[in-house]
């Protein structure tokens, strides 16, 4: 077992090439999913076949890294076989853990693959020590990916109470809602993260020009309007511009992404086991750069050296970032 002071860097891979790039750049673990609705990044051209996962696991293990398989959507009634097979295939491919959210799947994995490590997906939204204890006791969960609704102090308090590891997101896309408990996307498009592994899917996005403005629509709803010469953010529903009462603007959240690099020292002190980078949909070169930078930042912190300045800034260039819920003022 690693020393509690050295955090595990958990990195995304949407393709075998991205997996190799992440391992080469110093990822301790790589997480990925199968090419279907069993995972929450069910995007065209993304993810792994069982054979690719086997190959990827061999490559990762040779490089001293682990492979975690996200099977973190909620199975459709009557179609459990697809999700059960995904767990069986992950076990067969030599995965080091499966990341699950559905309690029925957790029960299945515990019963059929007792030796396969079970991590609780952020999609399960276990947001306090009692909920975490429930998953640990009932399903033998070894690690919980914490929902992005908690402050650093709350995370520290949780770690004092629970017997399993915790993992937190430190970089990349940011949900403002408790994940796994959001049907905003399906309300507008019929496709949801929980059921289909997609949010605000590109298939339902339309742009049109109107009076010098670019209007971005999701399904039948306008999500944003920007002057034609300005860059239009992707119309993710909760990052849209709306009006509510006298307020006009980003009711839920600005089009920001998460950057908690500056909080790495505090999160380490809070007892977090693993730092997770979001972005299985991102390119191989992005993965290489972001993993390299985070590796450097984490190693510097562990060695008691200052975190190299600007290492991560350029990765979110052109984007606004936030430390999100980790700071209490966000609420």
């Amino acid at each position: 077992m690693r020393s509690p002071h050295v955090p595990e860097l958990v990195c995304p891979a949407g393709t075998p090439a991205a997996l190799r790039a992440a391992v080469d750049a110093g990822a301790d673990s790589v997480y990925c999913g199968f090419c279907d609705e069993t995972n929450a990044r069910n995007f065209p051209g993304l993810n792994f076949t069982p054979a690719e996962l086997g190959e990827g696991a061999r490559y990762a293990h040779a490089g001293g890294a682990k492979v975690l398989v996200a099977i973190n959507t909620f199975p459709r009634a009557g179609a459990l076989g697809t999700w059960h097979r995904a767990i069986d295939e992950a076990a067969r491919a030599g995965a080091d853990a499966v990341i699950l959210a559905d309690i029925g799947l957790l029960a299945y994995a515990r019963e059929r693959h007792p030796d396969l490590r079970r991590h609780l997906s952020v999609q399960a939204a276990a947001a306090n020590a009692d909920a975490i204890r429930f998953y640990v006791e009932e399903f033998g969960v070894r690690r919980v990916v914490l929902p992005r609704v908690l402050t650093v102090n709350e995370i520290a308090a949780i770690n004092k109470e629970v017997s399993c590891e915790t993992e937190v997101f430190v970089f990349g896309g940011l949900c403002v809602m408790a994940e796994g408990r959001c049907s905003l996307s399906s309300y507008a498009t019929g496709k949801s993260p929980n059921m289909n592994g997609v949010c605000s899917p590109a298939s339902h996005v339309h742009y049109r020009e109107e009076k010098g403005e670019l209007v971005s629509r999701l399904g039948e709803f306008t999500i944003d309007r920007v002057p034609r010469h300005e860059p239009a953010p992707y119309p993710t529903l909760c990052k849209g511009c709306f009006s509510a009462g006298d307020y006009r603007g980003h009711v839920f959240e600005y089009p920001v992404s998460l950057d908690a690099a500056a909080l790495v020292p505090q999160l380490l002190k809070a007892g977090v086991t693993a730092f997770k980078i979001e972005g299985r949909q991102r390119s191989r070169s992005y993965i290489r750069d972001v993993v390299t930078s985070f590796r450097r930042a984490v190693d510097a912190e562990v060695a008691g050296e200052p975190i190299p300045p600007g290492a991560l800034q350029r990765l979110s260039e052109g984007q606004t970032t936030t430390a999100g819920a980790y700071r209490k003022t966000w609420r």
């Binding site: 909620f74 199975p75 459709r76 009634a77 009557g78 179609a79 459990l80 959210a101 559905d102 309690i103 029925g104 799947l105 029960a107 299945y108 399960a124 276990a126 947001a127 306090n128 009692d130 909920a131 204890r133 429930f134 998953y135 006791e137 009932e138 796994g180 408990r181 929980n194 059921m195």
Partner: peptide, 27 residues
Amino acid sequence: DLTMLSHLKRDQRFTVGPLINVYNEGT
């Protein structure tokens, strides 16, 4: 919220609200 299940006794009967993710027969 499933937090409640950590407090309910094994034989305690309960209702499941619409915010709990019951999508399939396994759950």
